[in-house]
Amino acid sequence: MSYLTRWSRKRSIWVFPVNAASCNGCDIEILASLTPRYDAERLGVEVVASPRHADVLLVTGTANSMTRGILKKIYEQMPEPRLVVAVGACALGAGVMRGCYNVGHGVDKVIPVNLFIPGCPPRPEAILFGILKLVGEHPRGQVVAKEQIGKVSTTEHEEGEK
C-alpha cells in the first residue's frame, strides 16, 4: 500500500451509523460527538447517507432478530476496505437486557467487528478515542494534542458535572 493511500485512509473516515435495536442513547452520544464541543469533523470524520460511501459502520444496539438481516445487508453493501465499530454495552453483549429471550447478544454474532466501544452510553470522548484508535492515531500523541483533543476532556467539563 502506497504512502498516499495509507495517509488518505487515515485522514478521511466516512461513517455510516446504524441503529440495530438500540434505545437511542448511543445514537445521541454519536450525534454529540459531531457537535461543536467535540467536532469529529476535525479528524476527517463525515457522516454519509449511504452505506456505499462509507468506510466505517457504527453499530449501536443488540442486533435482535428483527434488525439482524438488515444489519448484514448493510454490511454487504459497503465497499472494501470496511470497518465495523460496535458502540455501547448492547452492541458488545446485550447490556442490561442480557439473558432476555427476545434480544440479540452482540453485533459480533452477526458481522465481524473491528473495535468495541464500551459504555452505556459511551461518552463522545470515548467514541472519538475509538475512531482514532481505529485509524492508528493515539489520542495522546503529538498530532492530536496539537489539535486540541485535550480540550474536549478538560477539567472544565468535569466540573460542570459535579
Binding site: 498516499l4 493511500t5 495517509w7 488518505s8 485512509r9 485522514r11 478521511s12 466516512w14 457537535t35 461543536p36 467536532d39 469533523e41 476535525r42 479528524l43 476527517g44 463525515e46 468506510d55 465497499p79 472494501e80 476496505p81 498530532v143 492530536v144 489539535e147 486540541q148
Partner: peptide
Amino acid sequence: RIGPMLAGPRGILQPVADFFKLTSK
C-alpha cells in the same frame, strides 16, 4: 465548530484525502 484540522495545515488537504481514499476503494 472548527472543521477539518488534521489533513495538512488547517485541514486544507481534507478534500484531497477524501478523493484519494475513494479512488483506493
